[in-house]
Design a protein around this nucleic acid. Structure first.
Lengths: 135, 135
DNA sequence: TATTGTTATACTCTATAACTATA
DNA sequence: TATAGTTATAGAGTATAACAATA
């Protein structure tokens, strides 16, 4: 039964990617969740935590823990929003920005190992299929 | 960057499936990991723990925790192997077998929500792609 | 009343290292 | 020496519930 379950196959694909990520990207310093949060902050300077939660599709309480790690590493900083004082605007620090350059490079190296298993058209279809089930 | 990363998309697809599984299958009693272990035991009565670890691609130490839960629930039982006394042969109990009937039905219901998003050919391709990255 | 962020808590899933019993 | 299973420990990653501050 298992080999014919979509959930089982997605789960194993996820585990394989996860393991290679951890061997390749920011070894001992970073995980997929933290990486994607950093990229989001880099691409949206001053983004609010609630917005990070929405875009990453995880609970706002979960964001707090990730933010705390990145603050401890000195890779991000927060400033209270002027417009809405409930909000904490999140930015990368200079250190965080420099770090992310290397992480992105490692990320591309990691992705390449998997991307090369597909033709251009297969990849386009694969992404399409994966997006369909991101309900 | 994120929407164009294979890892990011697989991760989100995994989360979507995980959440729906937990709303649909064995509510409050079971998780994807436990379910797949039960199915494996059902299809391979007397399977050894080391074999479960190999087939599920997780460490043998991790199996112990899952086995312990299922023992507590009375859904599996173990007998020492006659041939190799290091081994513990794992079986479903009658209770476990009856339980699994309902769980399989819920699993199919859960899968159907996602499978119906694809044509037969798309699904065949999708499974092929997912298997390629299960390194 | 609703939203943003926080704290406390708990659970799943995974791994590594060191161990016992057995092969 | 190698393998099967266990224990202890750790660390991601997620969630829910209740709360303070602010809108």
């Amino acid at each position: 039964m298992l080999p014919n379950l979509l959930g089982f196959n997605v789960r194993r694909a996820h585990m394989a990617l996860w393991r290679d990520f951890n061997r390749t990207v920011g070894i001992g310093q970073i995980r997929p969740g933290i990486f994607s949060l950093m990229v989001l902050v880099d691409e949206n300077p001053g983004i609010a935590q609630i917005e990070l939660a929405t875009q990453l599709k995880i609970d706002k309480a979960t964001i707090v823990g990730l933010i705390r790690q990145l603050l401890r590493q000195g890779w991000i900083e927060r400033r209270q929003s002027g417009a809405d004082r409930r909000r904490q605007d999140v930015f990368l620090t200079d250190l965080g920005s420099r770090e992310l350059v290397g992480l992105r490079r490692e990320m591309i190296e990691h992705e390449a190992k998997f991307l090369r298993l597909f033709s251009r058209q297969e990849l386009a279809d694969f992404f399409d299929y994966l997006r369909r089930i991101q309900i």
